[in-house]
Design a protein around this nucleic acid. Structure first.
Lengths: 231, 231
DNA sequence: GAGTGGTCTAGACCACCCT
DNA sequence: GGGTGGTCTAGACCACTCC
């Protein structure tokens, strides 16, 4: 029977006990942890209360549940990326284009960057390392871009593609925030709804006065962090 | 009866329908939204399924539930702060000291800043605007600091307190990430477990070679975002 | 077929707020 | 006292995986 701390509900007690075990390394990373039925019996609570605790730990990135197999401790390893260096192509990373369309910028969170109101070229892609998606990038560009450059967007970072056509980034404004996962990113990263995501909204002015790049890059909190140095 | 989209469970359908209504402004910000019993009847699902959807929307920062009163749409307004300017004292902000202790740095997320292993001076404080906490700051300092300066830490930013004693910050390294809320910050910000938080881990070297400042500043995702400009 | 996690339900109890 | 949200339970069904 699990001890009930004062001012703590049952599912909280179960959750914290499991969290202690996980950080203490009591469960192997390759084997599933005990099933809800077993934990339910061990703690002396209903299986639903255990499920509640397990679901909260999934939402916090500590566990992953695989239907039909079991629940596993999530291995933690996170990329650290310089914020001021713009997209150096790392060896282990690969880019997969998702789509190239024409859309308006509708996301209200982009308002901080004062985006234009007209239809723009819209490129979606994912960045992978170790066969797992790390980042999801959504880029908006003026639609008058040369078609030759557009074709390269699926395989290169936008900045690199522009650079190869002698268009250089001159001023960059970045907004960094966190946000709960919802919709598209849930599926891309296979994370539950509400999962904490790190986001970088950016606006880049280029040497071509007609070309300003807008975009959002987002990643699950446990896969990416940013670094900056001052001065 | 709510329509069940293919490959979408009931509580997801309810959640998304409610999210649509919220963003459409169908519910007033000052009045509670319909109770779980009413929504349960309206959607033709059990009250538990409605509760599930409401809880997920709370975890995503869209709703707040007040026990005994009702569930309310959360008003959204977020501070935007420059990352390179170190803590300019804004007019509307006030600082409340929480505690000053002596502790070792134990949080493994600080490892990216290579903190020292010995016992350090540890200052916890909260930063408020509009009678609501916006940030929670945890600062670590060498314990040999002059007591006169220590006394000011409760009411000033550490950087400002040091500056008044002619100690200036020279090099700063920052790591920005997101993380689910747990433990202390849950209570400080009154957010549910797992709530997305924006964090800034920092290390500041000062003009005094014996004094290097380490710390973590964190805030709920819907209360703070950071800005940087390059070059 | 047995075990897993995920969903949905009904029903009960509690603490809280309001009138 | 009647409303609210929060917790905990039992029981059922499904889709999935593995043997």
């Amino acid at each position: 029977m699990i001890k009930l701390q004062p001012s703590q509900s049952l599912h909280e007690s179960v959750r914290e006990e499991l969290r202690r075990r996980i950080t203490a390394g009591a469960y192997s990373v390759d084997l599933p942890i005990p099933s809800t039925a077993m934990l339910s019996e061990e703690f002396g609570v209903s299986s639903i209360t255990v499920k509640r605790a397990l679901r909260d730990l999934q939402a916090a990135g500590a566990l992953v549940a695989v239907p039909g197999k079991g629940t596993y401790v999530k291995r933690q390893q996170r990329l650290l990326r310089q914020l001021d260096v713009m997209q150096p192509s790392l060896d282990d990373t690969s880019i997969r284009g998702v789509s190239i369309t024409r859309e308006k910028i509708t996301d209200p969170t982009m308002n901080a960057l004062a985006p234009p109101d007209h239809v723009m070229l819209c490129i979606r892609k994912t960045i992978w390392t170790d066969d797992a998606p790390v980042m999801y990038d959504l880029t908006y560009l003026s639609p008058e871009i040369d078609n030759e450059i557009v074709d390269e967007f699926g395989t290169k970072f936008v900045v690199d593609a522009l650079k190869m056509h002698s268009i250089h980034v001159q001023k960059t404004r970045i907004v960094i925030d966190a946000a709960p996962a919802s919709g598209t990113v849930e599926e891309i990263f296979d994370v539950p709804n509400g999962y904490p995501m790190l986001r970088r909204l950016y606006r880049m002015e280029t040497s071509d006065p007609g070309i300003t790049v807008y975009g959002v890059l987002q990643a699950p909190f446990d896969r990416l962090a940013c670094t900056v140095n001052f001065p």
